[in-house]
């Protein structure tokens, strides 16, 4: 068994036009930068992308949108991207907006082997249109299905050669959920170590969920909203 790939291009060699792909990250935090760059280089098209956000014009999934590689976007929030807006309004890009917790839990359900979940999010709103509902203890819930994705592309902080992953701070977000949910899961990591070097107590995603792993390079980690406070006198 060898899960270790030389780089992003080799790790996505079999992604095809029309595939359904999950991409981890919240905004630009914790996105699989190397894998997105490889998808851009590969030029695959008609992709359905499941990702909380759609990047910005010149970074993240925005790079794939610019080249019209994305047919459909499934997200909870898609601001901050002019090209996205243009394609959505012109009808070139199909967009399905779903509540963020529903998005996360539909990933989780896939990774837990459950076909569907019931959630109260969206009851009584247009999100509920056409969906099966059911009452539990006097409260109404929507039935939402687990995602079915061909690939999950995630970014972790540390990983080992068996595919075990550790995430950092809020760069965790959707990454461990999507890692569990892909038919094939590819993880890029900042630090790749031999199996046995990571403390098993600290593993967030067990390697069983990860099919391919490689050490990413040249992380830009762009910040969307750089907010700071003035340093106090003497600091």
């Amino acid at each position: 068994m060898n899960k270790v790939y030389p780089g992003a291009d080799e790790a996505i060699i079999d992604v095809k036009d029309g595939d359904i792909i999950m991409l981890g990250g919240f905004g630009l935090c914790g996105i699989p930068e190397n894998l997105i760059a490889a998808l851009v280089r590969k030029g695959v098209s008609r992709l359905t992308c499941i990702s909380n956000n759609a990047g910005v014009d010149d970074f993240g999934i925005g790079l794939m949108l610019k080249l019209k590689q994305v047919k459909k976007m499934i997200s909870s929030y898609v601001g901050e991207n002019d090209e996205f807006e243009r394609q959505m309004l012109s009808g070139e890009l199909e967009v399905e907006l779903i509540p963020q917790g529903t998005l996360a839990t539909r990933c989780m359900a896939a990774g837990y082997g459950m076909p569907a979940i019931f959630t109260p999010a969206g009851v009584g709103t247009e999100v509920a249109e056409g969906k099966e509902t059911r009452e539990f203890k006097g409260k109404e819930y929507l039935l939402e299905h687990a995602f079915d994705a061909d690939f999950a592309l995630v970014k972790a902080w540390k990983g080992d050669t068996d595919g075990n992953l550790i995430f950092k701070a809020t760069a965790r977000n959707f990454n461990p959920l999507m890692a569990m949910a892909g038919k094939i899961t590819v993880a890029e990591v900042e630090e790749l170590v031999p199996a046995g070097e990571l403390d098993p107590n600290n593993i967030h995603t067990p390697g069983i969920y990860v099919n391919r792993i490689f050490k990413g390079t040249n992380y830009e980690k762009r910040i969307e909203q750089r907010t700071v406070r003035k340093s106090q006198a003497g600091q």
Binding site: N52, G101, A104, T170
Partner: peptide
Amino acid sequence: DPDLINAGKQTITTLPGSAFFDSAMSF
């Protein structure tokens, strides 16, 4: 720290006693 932001995508810090988790646990 680009890996430490809030839901408004602003850079933030943590306080003593804080904890990180994934989006499914969050919701």
